[in-house]
Amino acid sequence: MSGANMPLLSVEDLHISLTTDAGRFPAVDGVSFTIARGETVGLVGESGCGKSITALSIMGLLRDPLGLAGGKIKLSGQEIQNLPASQLRALRGKRIAMIFQEPMTALNPLKAVGTQIAEMFVLHQGASWREAESKAVDALTQVKVPAPAQRAKDFPHQLSGGMRQRVMIAIALACEPDLLIADEPTTALDVTVQSEIVDLMKELCAARGTAILMISHDLGLVTDTCKRVCVMYAGRIVEQQDSERIFNSPQHPYTQGLVASLPRLGMRARHGRRRLTEIAGVVPGITAYPVGCRFHPRCTRRTEICETVVPELTALAEGSLVRCHHHG
């Protein structure tokens, strides 16, 4: 692949292992997906499914006890999973940027937010501090912070959660990266503020042609933000679909269970109060993933094969993928 057809990011057969005293465990097991330039892709799953560490591995930020155990991560065709630290630092912030769930812990509490944005221009574009600080005020204007020149002098604790997340977005988009990774960017925020922040992120990325990899446990949020969704369960992608279709025709029993178990607004008015469909059992821990299909102990459709053989990803119509022996 080359030129226009080459994906911006391609994650190929990614394996991440967790090493403990009890041994090595496959926290991420053969994850593959691609993101085209300007595309929005969501990675959805419950806590511990491996979605956040997949993102960290793209940023080159895996630390002990987590480690890359195989696979390739390519940015515009160039393998980046083994780059030396100095080259990775040049990539982070400039070509790939990330925003986190809790902006208070991601921002430096001892520096004014304007300085933290300005740093990006100094480090990655060689700007002078003076120049960078005026660019920082512009950046705050773009993320719609009111009175940006005054706010630039504020410290993180002086801002509300929503304003802090706007600052994070300003930092992340300062150098116009090709890819923005947003890990639960609005989970810590109130619902009305969440909706504004997501709209802002979508709008700014669309204007710049920045691709988004959004990570969340909230299927509604991800389908609302992204064109395509990958559903992860216990370290594997179990389904990949267009957002438009995932609520109406989920293919994997896990996704089907999730969609059916959510009390969505409007359901009661249309269908009366029905008992919610439960997914039996619990989410397995990394150290005790089941053999075969990892969802089989909770699955209503399991047969013998599910208990021993890992299902392959099957391609369905319209580019959907599903990892199940009895999908559909």
């Binding site: 509300s160 929503g162 304003m163 109130d190 619902v191 009305t192 503020v193 969440q194 909706s195 504004e196 997501v198 709209d199 909230d218 509604g220 949020l221 389908t223 609302d224 933000t225 438009e244 609520f247 969505r264 607004l265 409007g266």
Partner: peptide, 24 residues
């Protein structure tokens, strides 16, 4: 109405003009 419009769900897509601005 703003709380309903803020739910990220395909069902509320038509409600963008009901959204609240700014912060509490």
């Amino acid at each position: 109405r703003a709380l309903i419009a803020a739910i990220p769900d395909p069902l509320t897509r038509g409600l963008a003009r009901e959204k609240a601005r700014g912060e509490i």
